Simulated assay, not measured.
Amino acid sequence: MKRINRDLKEEIRDYWSKRSETFDLAFGHAIAAGPELDAWAAAVKQALGPQPRRVLELACGTGEVTGVLLGLGHEVTALDFSEAMLTVARRKHAGHKKVRFILADAESTMEDEASYEAIICRHLVWTLTEPEQAFSDWRRILRPGGLLLIFDGDWARPTLMGRAASLVIHVIDLLVGADPHHGGMSDRHAAIMAQLPFGGGLTTKRLVPMLADAGFADIELSSQWTIAVAQRKHATLRNKLRTLIYRRFILSCRKSGEAAGSLRPHVDRRHG
């Protein structure tokens, strides 16, 4: 199994590396200035509080969430295991003194124990090949009271509304042509997804017990509805519909056995 996972990791790395230069052109990846950026900043600030923190961003990709964190004044270590993605992110934030980019594996970071006040990731957890190992490592490198903040979703199973939205998107594609930036390398993506532990769907019902077993507590869930609403403000009809397809969530939790202090997350149990 370990060898299979290593081979799969290399396939995942190669897939994202090949998408690095055009990744931000796909709807939902770049964070547009204005309402969408404001919604992301509000969600992060609600979880981390108003004070600057030492934050590890896992799977930073092209550096979009990195920009949100830097805009809020945090000191950021942005990690990714694709050098091609990091090249784009470094270019985007060239000269910024509060960010450090490192090439490393998000499932085994090799960072020092208790070295971060917060860890944040967007659309990473569903790609993990060994989630239990990853969660253990993330807890290890958090400081007492440190937060883990996850933005992710169930990308395998559309909601009922999402299935209807997908049908309308299909009709639009037939009428005006497919979006060249959406669903890049879809066959390869599907082949990778089929081999992942969360390939059948990342649900909070599965994720919450795993995080608790790894030593996280005060687990709070909310939806990404405010972000989706902001994305729709200046989107095309096709992209507005895309915000309805999957159930996306925000999960925050803290290292258990420690006083959370001012880093305790805001309680919001709404979950879409």
Rank of each mutant, 00 (worst) to 15 (best):
M161D: 13
M210T: 02
T159M: 08
P180I: 03
R232C: 15
T243N: 02
F249E: 06
G177W: 10
F135V: 13
R270S: 08
I102G: 02
A41D: 05
P180Q: 02
M210Y: 10
E57Y: 02
R264G: 01
G215V: 07
W138Y: 12
M193W: 07
L202N: 07
R6H: 11
T236Q: 02
T204V: 13
F81P: 00
K18V: 09
A26L: 01
S20T: 09
E11A: 15
F23N: 11
I192S: 10
V88R: 15
L237F: 10
R242M: 13
F151L: 14
S136W: 01
L196A: 04
L37G: 09
M193S: 14
V55I: 13
V76I: 07
A47G: 04
L56K: 02
Q224G: 00
V208C: 14
R13K: 15
M185Q: 14
V267T: 10
S115F: 07
I150M: 04
R140C: 05
L72G: 05
W40N: 01
Q231Y: 12
G162L: 03
G200Q: 11
N239Y: 06
Q224W: 00
D137S: 04
G49D: 08
I227C: 04
Q231W: 10
A235W: 02
A118K: 03
L221S: 03
S262R: 08
R19F: 10
T109R: 06
A190Q: 14
A78D: 04
L142H: 02
G153N: 04
N5S: 09
D80G: 06
H96N: 15
G71P: 06
V267M: 09
G184R: 14
V176Q: 14
G49R: 02
A235K: 07
A39D: 07
L8C: 03
A39P: 04
A30Q: 13
H93E: 03
R247E: 12
A106Q: 10
Q224P: 00
D173R: 15
V125L: 05
